[in-house]
Nucleic acid binder design. Structure first.
Lengths: 217, 217
DNA sequence: TAAAAAATTTAGACTTATCTAAAATATGAA
DNA sequence: TTCATATTTTAGATAAGTCTAAATTTTTTA
């Protein structure tokens, strides 16, 4: 098995790799709150284990073996988040740190039974897809709310910022996963957005919030 | 917070301390499959943190602070074991290693909510008492089955050996927690025991098995 | 009660994962 | 295309937890 540090690096590289073909040492260092030199050391180790493709100064990608491990960790993270919210009644802004610990529980059988216990959920509390026991999952077409135009409507289906303050704000505004919204106005001056939630409540959000809310059309 | 290694030492000292006022370096080393010199190093560290009472060559006891931590870990271990058996349908011989990992998940609120989710169980799948959120628990008077006499009866309420082979054997013989048994014969020659389970099945067990089965009268 | 045996501790070394500081390489702007 | 800057790597150090081998202390036993 892999150490906790190795697992965290693989997960990090996977996440960063979603937005770029190649992931740089500095990106990883920033993401893990560590130093570039520490990252280089770990990259050598992961390359020795054939979990990443790495050439000095050229950045990294995951090998299929590395990606499989990363997806397994993400599967565990999201299933435990679902458990914490659906079974233990935590709020969606409270579960991230706990799931960061729980994602490293090693038993494959445990996670598969947990999945079954909860009825094979397809999305975690933040709308992110949960990989199945073979690591497969669909990434639905989601676009930032900020790209919609006036009168366009859609369903809140994900977030790009997973931090507590943002999630708490959304909760208070009733901007939660599954809610249908319609754009009623876009203010030219600051690109803030007015919108209607379901059929009643009308609210106004900043460009930044609109950028971090993901919509399914 | 404490490291994983520290938590394991505290738990180990707690368990060994159940059978002796003072716990020795060698006992800890044997129990943790490590070397006495490693134990000495860790004892210094735990003493510096005021979690154990330690004087060179004299063995250790837990301080109240150390005991509180140990009981917290045991609470988590037993609650997760209960979860694995009652919610995820694992067998009682399969859950120990998983719970060894899960007992180190740090959130106090998580464990308290887990406790509530399961209805505040009093005993884990092996019959061991689960401390409440204040660390309190009752240790019922249990005696080895080997101390009973012919015609005496009691209820199977715990085990002294928690290893898979023993638990699997018990399961196969239907010698599980809660079953009422009555001694029908004790063979002088090898101290093996014949007994009746509930009102029907009659079986024969070795002295060793009888020694590791705990009975409530 | 003194020597032998057992238990424990100390000394020094190793591994993992991290760091700082310095060196090497890549990038991009003039 | 060359030089300044940014990025990345290397070198050497540190802390946690472990190890072996040697030294010390306690316990046992004759």
């Amino acid at each position: 098995m892999n150490t906790l540090a190795e697992e965290n690096y693989l997960k990090c590289i996977y996440h960063l790799g979603m937005n770029a073909a190649i992931v740089s040492t500095n990106q990883i260092a920033a993401s893990l709150n560590t130093k570039a030199s520490s990252v280089t050391d770990m990259l050598k180790k992961l390359a020795d284990k054939a979990l990443i493709n790495y050439t000095r100064y050229q950045g990294v990608t995951l090998t299929p073996a590395g990606e499989k491990i990363a997806i397994g960790i993400i599967r565990k993270h999201r299933l435990w988040e679902y458990f914490l919210v659906e079974k233990l009644n935590f709020k969606w802004d409270q579960v991230h740190d706990m799931a960061e610990e729980m994602e490293h529980i090693s038993s494959q059988e445990l996670v598969d039974r947990l999945d079954e216990f909860m009825g094979f959920p397809k999305h975690d509390p933040h709308g992110d897809p949960i990989p199945d026991c073979n690591g497969r999952f669909k990434t639905p077409e989601l676009i930032p709310l900020s790209t919609l135009v006036v009168n366009q409507c859609g369903v809140i289906s994900g977030v790009r910022d997973h931090t507590s303050p943002f999630l708490q704000y959304l909760e208070k505004q009733q901007l939660t996963i599954g809610k249908k919204i319609t754009i009623t106005d876009i203010i030219e001056y600051d690109h803030s957005v007015a919108l209607k939630i379901e059929t009643d409540k009308e609210i106004h959000i900043s460009r930044e919030v609109a950028n971090n809310l993901l919509i399914a059309l």
